[in-house]
Simulated scan of single mutants.
Amino acid sequence: MDRLQAMTVFVAVAEEEGFAPAARRLAMSPPVVTRAIAALEARIGTRLLHRTTRNVRLTEAGTRYLEDCRRILAEIDEAEETAAGSHREPQGQLAVTASVLFGRMYIAPILLDFLGRHPRVSARTLFVDRVVNLMEEGLDVAVRIAHLPDSGMTALKVGSVRRLVCASPAYLAEHGIPQEPADLIRHQTIAFQGVTPSPEWSFRSGGSEVRVRPSPRLEVNTAEMAITAAVQGHGLTRVLSYMVAPEMAAGRLRIVLAEHEPAPVPIHLVHREGRQASARVRAFVDFAAQRLRADGSIN
């Protein structure tokens, strides 16, 4: 078995966390897979996998080698696709990541429409409320809602969102409307850690930054829970504007302290390949950018 085949086998074993499932994925016999990994480890001179009766785990060296194998195999796939003319015609698997709520509200409909237009493309999504490493997770495109550091990635701005404070009309009628950020100290608040990992909420007042530390009655780790609690009148919460666009349109929530909001947060589509991106990545980024830029709730 040549080196590229051995790398493919190793990636399958690592991702499937077992020799038997990797063999099924590759349409090989388990003994062939086992011998391929043993030969690979012998050639490299180090153990790549910890084997137990229940599962297979990567060693530290194996974790590093997996990242390199994914990169090398992806580059080979891209070279073959380009040579075959697929740089012009989208095909192959597209892997996209976004936060859970943004993925469900925006990326999922866009991706499904994209697949409908490109029958030779398949897709995989990873919607999680954490920043993922595209290379390590084998991903093509990420949605980043943040001010981005210089990472060498290609980033395309497609919109922006506000960090706003809102509450139900019933809550505001009972407890009053805060006029200044400092008024939040006297209100019931719902802390959503995904937007404000710090216990302080930042605002602008008179050209300066103002920080307030509310004492939340409720702390949650999902936007849906924070929004549900706010709609039901349990207090003020701070979320990103796109998260509550339906509730605002229906009148179930109202914005407060709008004149003190910090600067909007940009939304970017990020990918690794730059101008050398495959047809499927370029086509999806262009398609998603057009759709997101046309959406009034994030612009």
Results as ranks from 00 to 15, higher is better:
residue 98 A to D: 07
residue 77 D to G: 11
residue 91 Q to S: 07
residue 118 H to I: 05
residue 89 E to T: 04
residue 113 D to A: 14
residue 77 D to H: 15
residue 74 A to D: 13
residue 97 T to K: 12
residue 102 F to P: 04
residue 116 G to E: 10
residue 117 R to N: 08
residue 75 E to G: 12
residue 100 V to Q: 08
residue 79 A to N: 04
residue 111 L to I: 07
residue 105 M to D: 11
residue 114 F to C: 00
residue 73 L to P: 06
residue 112 L to W: 05
residue 88 R to M: 09
residue 87 H to R: 06
residue 92 G to D: 05
residue 88 R to N: 05
residue 72 I to P: 01
residue 118 H to F: 08
residue 111 L to Y: 01
residue 76 I to G: 12
residue 114 F to Q: 06
residue 94 L to Q: 00
residue 96 V to P: 03
residue 90 P to H: 00
residue 116 G to V: 01
residue 74 A to T: 15
residue 101 L to W: 09
residue 92 G to L: 11
residue 82 T to I: 11
residue 109 P to C: 13
residue 104 R to H: 12
residue 113 D to N: 07
residue 90 P to N: 06
residue 82 T to Q: 07
residue 111 L to N: 01
residue 106 Y to L: 13
residue 84 A to S: 11
residue 107 I to T: 04
residue 76 I to W: 03
residue 85 G to Q: 00
residue 112 L to F: 06
residue 107 I to C: 07
residue 77 D to F: 07
residue 95 A to F: 10
residue 95 A to Y: 10
residue 115 L to Q: 03
residue 82 T to A: 11
residue 88 R to W: 04
residue 97 T to E: 11
residue 113 D to E: 15
residue 95 A to V: 15
residue 90 P to F: 00
residue 76 I to P: 04
residue 85 G to L: 06
residue 80 E to N: 14
residue 72 I to Q: 10
residue 94 L to R: 09
residue 83 A to M: 09
residue 114 F to A: 10
residue 115 L to E: 00
residue 117 R to E: 08
residue 93 Q to Y: 09
residue 96 V to L: 08
residue 86 S to M: 01
residue 86 S to P: 01
residue 109 P to D: 10
residue 73 L to G: 06
residue 94 L to T: 10
residue 72 I to R: 14
residue 99 S to H: 14
residue 79 A to V: 10
residue 104 R to V: 14
residue 109 P to K: 08
residue 118 H to N: 15
residue 82 T to R: 13
residue 101 L to G: 13
residue 98 A to Y: 00
residue 85 G to T: 04
residue 79 A to D: 12
residue 82 T to V: 07
residue 79 A to E: 13
residue 73 L to Q: 06
residue 82 T to M: 02
residue 76 I to M: 15
residue 93 Q to E: 14
residue 107 I to L: 11
residue 95 A to P: 10
residue 77 D to P: 03
residue 100 V to W: 00
residue 97 T to R: 02
residue 112 L to M: 09
residue 78 E to V: 13
residue 101 L to Y: 12
residue 107 I to F: 05
residue 106 Y to N: 03
residue 91 Q to W: 07
residue 107 I to H: 00
residue 81 E to A: 12
residue 85 G to P: 01
residue 76 I to A: 14
residue 117 R to S: 03
residue 86 S to N: 12
residue 94 L to F: 04
residue 88 R to V: 02
residue 104 R to N: 07
residue 109 P to Q: 06
residue 91 Q to N: 05
residue 91 Q to K: 09
residue 114 F to P: 00
residue 86 S to T: 10
residue 97 T to F: 08
residue 101 L to P: 10
residue 92 G to Y: 05
residue 105 M to K: 11
residue 97 T to V: 15
residue 91 Q to I: 02
residue 82 T to Y: 02
residue 115 L to K: 03
residue 74 A to Q: 13
residue 113 D to S: 13
residue 88 R to H: 00
residue 93 Q to L: 10
residue 85 G to I: 00
residue 105 M to S: 13
residue 72 I to H: 08
residue 86 S to C: 01
residue 80 E to S: 07
residue 117 R to M: 10
residue 109 P to A: 03
residue 72 I to E: 12
residue 93 Q to P: 03
residue 109 P to M: 12
residue 103 G to Y: 02
residue 84 A to G: 02
residue 85 G to R: 02
